[in-house]
Amino acid sequence: MEYLSLFVKSIFVDNMIFAYFLGMCSYLAVSKNVKTASGLGVAVIFVLLVTLPINYLLNVYVLGPGALQWLSPSLADVDLSFLSFIIFIAVIAAITQIVEMVVEKFAPSLYSALGIYLPLIAVNCAILGGSLFMQQRDFVNVGEASVYALGSGIGWFLAIVTLAAIREKMAYANVPHALKGLGITFITVGLMGMAFMTFMGISL
């Protein structure tokens, strides 16, 4: 089943953090405890799931070479792909703003726990990166793009929650002073990345 294979592949093999290093900044900053980490993870899943299919449709019907043909055949030569970056980021910024307003209304404690990292989802490389990779991969339909978005989001969520769990335990370990905090976190993420590489080459 192609969808299932794509879904599993985007969680484990094409993991946003471990394979492509996207979303590192907020990943490292918010992974100090599991509760806030899962809150941010869920927000990332949601933003990806909404923005990627929208950007996919924009890419197919507006931005790609010859994409505007459905409006008028004379526009077949128009290639607006140079506007991709700016259009994608505009969509992402808008959706993030909406998510921010929804979280503030319905989960105010999460809102204050996440602080500045919620609006920073707009500049989270994982979100824009997801849309840019989608452009390269050429999915067949919006369904595939959505499955990819969901899988990528879950992969990011998995990565940040596991790192937070490890960091919570590491607070009790005897790490050398110069390595404490940032240094040992980098090395841990590197080792986790190596572990995730075992998923390479899996096809369902």
């Binding site: 471990f18 394979a19 492509y20 290093f21 050398p176 110069a178 390595l179 940032l182 240094g183 040992i184 976190t185 980098f186 090395i187 993420v189 590197g190 080792l191 986790m192 990345g193 190596m194 590489m197």
Partner: peptide, 14 residues
Amino acid sequence: LPPMALILLGCIVW
């Protein structure tokens, strides 16, 4: 491969 870059970075920070 990607993970090594992280470990190298960790060493630089160290």
